[in-house]
């Protein structure tokens, strides 16, 4: 493990070059180019906002900001994992010719998705500014936002760990990426994106609060909640004419989430390194 880490450190220039290349080629041949990274979430969020506001009677003010704050981290995770699934396979021609630490391939993909994520967050702040300008009585900005690096680092570790694991697995079994596609789609529904974690608690109370905790044991769901609590002003969600009490960020759940993210990263990295010599020998 220690040797692998030193080697990774020595190859940091290659990692940097690869991330740069990844960023360049993603939208190389499209006219709108980089704008697609922003248009995609904005379109999705508009549709979600429309459906949930008008058909599902969600009357929370600035509901769209809540959706966006949780959808962006989900989208980062989805994109990072899907792209890294293919990363080793796509690079196989060069992997078969030159030696370099193979873990660089999925890590570079995750890094480039992370850059897109950070840029999308800038758009999110611009969005908040628009909200503020249209209604300057309440400021949507708060000191809470200084906590942002915590969920950012955790989501990077989670995506990198999952990406390394999936990339290795997909190199041997190409069915993995189809399974992952389905799972990621399902993940959208079990994360508090189109609804509020307050609603999850209200619904869980009938069956016992363990359901609420089980729901947040999913690190992606917890990270979505965390981003939402940190990025958007506290406000009681109003659904179907009923107001639910706003919940602060649960730090106990956050610690659990951090533990999961770190172990996923360590586990994914260790698994990748254990099997990486087999990639080129794949019959």
């Amino acid at each position: 493990m220690k040797n692998d880490l030193t080697e990774l450190w020595q190859a940091r220039e290659l990692l940097f070059t690869l991330v740069e290349r990844e960023l360049r080629i993603r939208y190389k041949n499209s006219i709108l180019g980089f704008l697609w990274s922003l248009l995609n979430p904005l379109l999705t969020v508009s549709v979600m906002w429309f459906v949930f506001k008008f058909y599902m009677a969600n009357e929370t003010p600035n509901f769209s900001a809540y959706i966006l704050a949780a959808y962006l981290p989900y989208m980062f995770f989805q994109q990072a994992v899907l792209d890294s699934a293919q990363s080793v396979l796509q690079a196989l021609p060069i992997v078969k010719k030159v030696y370099f630490p193979r873990e660089i391939l999925p890590i570079a993909v995750v890094c480039s998705s992370f850059v897109h994520f950070l840029l999308a967050l800038c758009v999110f702040f611009a969005f908040l500014l628009v909200i503020y300008l249209s209604d300057p009585r309440v400021s949507p900005f708060s000191w809470n936002m200084l906590l942002l690096p915590i969920p950012l680092i955790l989501s990077f570790l989670l995506a990198a760990g999952t990406g390394l694991f999936i990339a290795a697995l997909n190199t041997f079994f190409e069915d993995v990426k189809y399974i992952v596609q389905v799972l990621l789609q399902l993940l959208l529904f079990v994360c508090p994106i189109m609804y509020f974690s307050e609603q999850v608690l209200a619904a869980s109370q009938r069956h016992g609060t363990w359901m609420y905790f089980a729901y947040h044991a999913n690190p992606v769901a917890m990270l979505c909640t965390a981003f939402r609590k940190i990025l958007v002003a506290p406000q009681d969600p109003i659904v179907g004419g009923k107001s639910l009490p706003w919940l602060p960020l649960d730090w106990a759940l956050m610690v659990l989430c951090a533990a999961v993210c770190v172990s996923v990263f360590v586990g994914g990295y260790a698994y990748f390194n254990r099997v990486k010599w087999g990639f080129v020998e794949r019959p």
């Binding site: 070059t17 690869l18 290349r21 360049r24 190389k28 041949n29 060069i94 010719k97 030159v98 370099f100």
Partner: peptide, 23 residues
């Protein structure tokens, strides 16, 4: 390297030199 193994078709020759040199 064999005929352009490791070259990315959509990148220019110059950009590919950078990547291949580093790799």
């Amino acid at each position: 390297l064999e005929l352009g193994a490791g070259f990315h078709p959509d990148l220019s020759g110059l950009e590919n030199i950078l990547f291949n040199g580093v790799i």
